[in-house]
Design a protein around this nucleic acid. Structure first.
Lengths: 179, 179
DNA sequence: ACACATTAGTTGCACGTGTAACTAAGGTCA
DNA sequence: TGACCTTAGTTACACGTGCAACTAATGTGT
């Protein structure tokens, strides 16, 4: 009896130990938040690409520039980069591509000859006004998947997570720089 | 007077018209769900990469293979691809890289000589057990940004969105195939 | 048993992208 | 005004990745 009880106690301790260790170390990819975020973002981008890629052959960077200029009218490449979180080389190439297709025009700023003032051509504007509603429609159909009573919480969570992820990324960048 | 009133009426109609059109067509990138999801996922991945990339020089695909094998023990490349949503070429290259580094071993399956049974070497297992807790810790710190009262709703929303995005992506793929 | 289709996994190729180096212009301080 | 630094934007290079084609093994139908 005593040995049984002792065994039982050991078994209990072991399972507790294991459960604790499992909670701390077993990483299930499908439950891992960064992976889930990545997966959702990718599926969403893939589905959305049907709107601008299939019939227009426009890529993500070009799409973002188009949308940003559609929203703001005239901007420098720098400003587009800041607003879209795109690297300046990405912006540069997207702008060149859109210009080549006649959707975007640039004129050098007389006050600062380093920068170009970018804007949509009439064709670019027409493309934008054709695509934007369809993109918004897509976003609406996607967001509809969320239970209405969960939407506000989701919005808050998304904002908070983005803020935190930005802070953690900066932290990581600083750590990289230090060493 | 009549002309003034007429003008005013026109102006009103115009603003209403514009407001309606704006609600339907003005696309603000920073409020556009797919873009927000992409941004969050990217910031999160960037910050997380500090865990496995900085000291270990491991990339995302290798990281996923490592985690998956850490979780399941022995798997084929095909199964890893299914579980991580990675293309088979990506899996193939990640496996080759991990093998080169001595973190992964493969042995051909006698029952089906096309496939390799992949598993972690002791070194691979050690790396995994070193990295997994740190990754989990990172995920915890990230998730902490969400207000506790919002967490359940966020979880539901994330699952629903992923399901819907998958469906929309399949729909897009089917449409592409049709034409 | 043989031809044909399917599947696991690898490799060649083209392309997008991040990093670093560069050009050209503007700002600063003496 | 001239030396120096910073900034907007472009280009060269290396690298990761998706697609298509391929190899080798298995399954299927007659």
């Amino acid at each position: 009896m005593t040995t049984d009880m002792a065994n039982e106690r050991v078994a209990l301790e072991n399972t507790e130990e294991l459960a604790k260790k499992a909670a701390a170390t077993v990483l299930r990819l499908e439950a891992f938040l960064p992976y889930r975020l990545y997966l959702l973002a990718n599926l969403s981008a893939l589905a959305l690409s049907r709107v601008y890629n299939d019939q227009y052959g426009i890529g993500i960077p070009e799409w973002r520039v188009l949308v940003t200029l559609g929203q703001f009218g005239v901007m420098t490449g720098k400003a587009i980069g800041a607003h879209t979180h795109m690297h300046k080389t990405k912006v540069s190439r997207a702008v060149a591509e859109l210009e080549k297709r006649g959707l975007l025009a640039r004129r050098t700023n007389r006050e600062d000859m380093r920068e170009s003032l970018l804007s949509l051509t009439p064709e670019g504007r027409a493309t934008y006004e054709e695509l934007a509603p369809r993109a918004l429609d897509f976003a609406r159909r996607l967001a509809e998947a969320i239970d209405p009573t969960d939407r506000a919480a989701f919005e808050r969570a998304l904002d908070q997570l983005t803020k935190r992820a930005g802070a953690l990324a900066d932290e990581a960048a600083a750590a990289r720089k230090r060493q």
